[in-house]
């Protein structure tokens, strides 16, 4: 089965690049590996016939968010001498939050059915028309809620930026 081979190849790339994000010494390389990881995840979306989701994933994550991330990392000018020293408190907080996230993920995955992998029967489930219809009929309230959340975040960032200028 070719789709099986493609799936395992993509899965291997996803896991490998995700590990490289953590193990890379230079933050720039971490960012680059993360972009590669996003591309392999977009590949998974395409395998599931969700082309719209795949391309939006690329535009939003690889095209916008990672550019901002790279932007920040470049301006921070991180090197050995200026590397921030983390206290034991922040390290332990990191361990606790990471562990809790792991627990939540484990609880969520416990009920997953580990069956054979299959794409949906019809090929047009991922088309923009279908996704749009679902979003604006069945999931209208969550959709609008998300947009309110985004506006709140935008106004918050503008307020923070304005505050800086007055000092």
């Amino acid at each position: 089965m070719t789709s099986d081979i493609v799936f395992f190849l993509l899965a291997a790339i996803s896991v490998f690049t995700a590990l490289m994000v953590v193990f890379s010494k230079s933050p720039i390389y971490s960012v680059m590996w993360l972009i590669a990881c996003f591309f392999s995840i977009a590949g998974h979306y395409v395998m599931l016939n969700a082309q719209f989701l795949a391309i939006v994933h690329i535009i939003v994550y690889a095209g916008a968010i990672m550019v901002l991330m790279l932007f920040t990392v470049m301006l921070l000018n991180l090197n050995k001498e200026s590397e921030p020293h983390k206290s034991i408190l922040s390290k332990s907080i990191g361990i606790i939050t990471g562990g809790m996230l792991f627990l939540v993920l484990l609880a969520a995955m416990r009920s997953t059915q580990l069956g054979p992998y299959s794409a949906p029967e019809t090929t047009d489930v991922g088309f923009v028309q279908k996704v749009g219809m679902k979003l604006f009929t069945d999931y209208l309230l969550p959709f609008e809620m998300t947009s309110v959340l985004f506006i709140a975040a935008m106004i918050g960032s503008v307020v923070l930026a304005k505050k800086e200028r007055n000092i």
Partner: peptide, 8 residues
């Protein structure tokens, strides 16, 4: 959308 993605 592909065009916009590649541009970005």
């Amino acid at each position: 959308l592909y065009v916009l993605g590649v541009v970005s």
